Amino acid sequence: MTKLRIAWVLVALFVVTLVLLPFQLIGLAFDLKMRRRIPRYWHKSACWLLGIRIHVHGRLETRRPLMLASNHVSWKDILVLGAVADVVFIAKAEVAKWPIFGPLARLQKSIFVVREEKRRTGEQVNEIAARMNAGEIVVLFPEGTTSDGNRLMEVKSSLFGAAAAAAPHTAEKLVHVQPVAIAYTRVHGMAMGRFHRPIAAWPGDIEMLPHLLGVLKEGALDVDVALGEAIDFRAGDNRKHLSQKVTSRMRRMLIRHLRGREYDAA
């Protein structure tokens, strides 16, 4: 039954992709607004097929420009956040070359950054600012890597350079940064403790294919997505202060959900 289920999920996801692909290609070719919405349908379908149940706490900030700063547990975070809102991700340039995930990231028009090449910083920042000014919600994973799902890794203030550099180029000279905490909390309806959380997490030393097969075999994960109060980051503000505020709120929300406490968005 497990093999049949895995085969059914893969075939169904392939069919969904084939149905949505032509519309997304047209949207990308003519820069239509539907290119922002179609990926959300795909992510919702993928989560449903994989058995990922999403529980949202709090509200998405309505003001723009908006950047979401989220902890990073797994590649599934992309599916989860992509199902919650019409978002675009900031990703490392090498992601574009990954099998499967690379083409999907390009189809969603992710913003690929080359952190080592300072000569391209201005070009990349301009793209981030332009996308946010156009009303797109940009997602940043400030840890810079994935965790084991039990804690928040060190948040790199340097990664908030995108917000710091983009703020002066936005209409109101500010960027709204909303902290987000993603917590995988249950498997098959049972509380997921520290021992079982690696089922959901994807630390960098674990190969993709075995991990993907493990998720497909489980077929029932619950994830809590906590949306905190947005922080107004203005041109000239200190990005280290922003990093500290975001880190504090992300850690507080993450701990509350991992411990099963009700989250109060206020």
Results as ranks from 00 to 15, higher is better:
V177L: 10
I255L: 14
S147W: 05
S70A: 14
D232V: 15
H257D: 07
Q178Y: 11
P168D: 00
P168S: 00
R115T: 05
R37Q: 05
V88L: 00
V114I: 15
T62Q: 10
G102R: 06
A83V: 10
L174G: 02
D232C: 13
P168H: 01
H196K: 00
R259D: 13
V87D: 03
A226M: 09
P179T: 07
I199W: 09
T62W: 01
I26W: 08
K33E: 14
F30G: 04
G58D: 05
G214T: 02
G189I: 07
M1R: 10
V15A: 12
E262N: 14
R256I: 00
I78G: 04
N238E: 13
A167N: 07
V84P: 03
R131M: 11
K92A: 09
T170R: 15
A166Y: 11
A129C: 11
L13D: 02
A93M: 09
G144Q: 03
G260M: 12
R151D: 13
K240W: 13
L20D: 05
P22A: 12
W8R: 13
K173P: 12
A130N: 03
M192E: 06
R194T: 06
S74I: 10
V139S: 10
F160D: 00
M1Y: 06
D237S: 12
A93F: 05
S157V: 06
L213M: 11
S248N: 13
I54M: 11
V223C: 03
L4D: 06
I137Q: 11
A191Q: 08
H72D: 11
T145Y: 06
V56D: 00
G122K: 14
M192T: 03
R63Q: 13
E116T: 15
V84W: 09
R249G: 04
M250Q: 10
R115V: 07
P22Y: 09
E229D: 05
R186G: 05
L20C: 10
N150R: 14
D205V: 10
I78E: 12
V125R: 04
L213V: 00
H257Y: 01
M253L: 15
A230R: 01
A171C: 02
V113C: 12
L242W: 11
L18W: 08
W202Y: 14
V246L: 06
G260T: 08
N150A: 11
T2L: 02
V19Y: 08
W98R: 05
H188G: 05
R186I: 04
E154T: 14
W202K: 10
K217V: 03
R37A: 09
R120K: 15
L50W: 06
I90A: 01
L104R: 01
R151Q: 14
W48G: 13
V125F: 15
N238D: 15
L107D: 02
